[in-house]
């Protein structure tokens, strides 16, 4: 049974999932991850402004040069500051941001089960 399920799992999930990412998808993903700095709360992908058009060209050029997604973010952050990326970078200052939701979730669950245990004894 276990074996069968495992096989089924591989059949259903691991087909060509990883090949889905096309170039166009990557471009869009990056555009969506960048804030249009002269707009109010819009991403570069959503905005119609000149700024967004310029950034799109920059990103396209960088991709053509073979730069990776993270390298492009690093470049833009060094130029415009962290404000431009929607996904806050994992660093010392943002550690609390990334970790605290799960810390809350897990500590709550632990406390919950601890109290239950205690009551049972």
């Amino acid at each position: 049974m276990k074996n069968f399920l495992l096989q089924l799992f591989f059949l259903l999930f691991v087909n060509n999932a990883l090949l889905c990412m096309e170039k166009n998808d990557q471009e869009l993903k990056i555009f969506k991850n960048l804030r249009c700095l002269i707009c109010q709360g819009q991403s570069v992908a959503d905005s119609n402004s000149d700024f967004a058009q310029t950034i799109k060209l920059v990103v396209k050029d960088k991709l053509k040069d073979g730069k990776s997604e993270n390298e492009i973010y690093d470049f833009l952050v060094s130029k415009y500051g962290e404000w431009i990326v929607y996904k806050p970078q994992m660093n010392k200052t943002n550690f609390i941001l990334w970790a605290s939701p799960y810390l809350i979730l897990i500590s709550g669950l632990i406390l919950f089960f601890y109290l239950m245990r205690k009551r049972h004894k």
Binding site: K32, N33, R35, S43, G81, E82, W83, I84, V85, Y86, K87, P88, T93, N94, L97, W98
Partner: peptide, 9 residues
């Protein structure tokens, strides 16, 4: 330091 927390987060 001004950061953005958007959809990817």
């Amino acid at each position: 330091s001004k950061i953005s927390v958007g959809p990817p987060f």
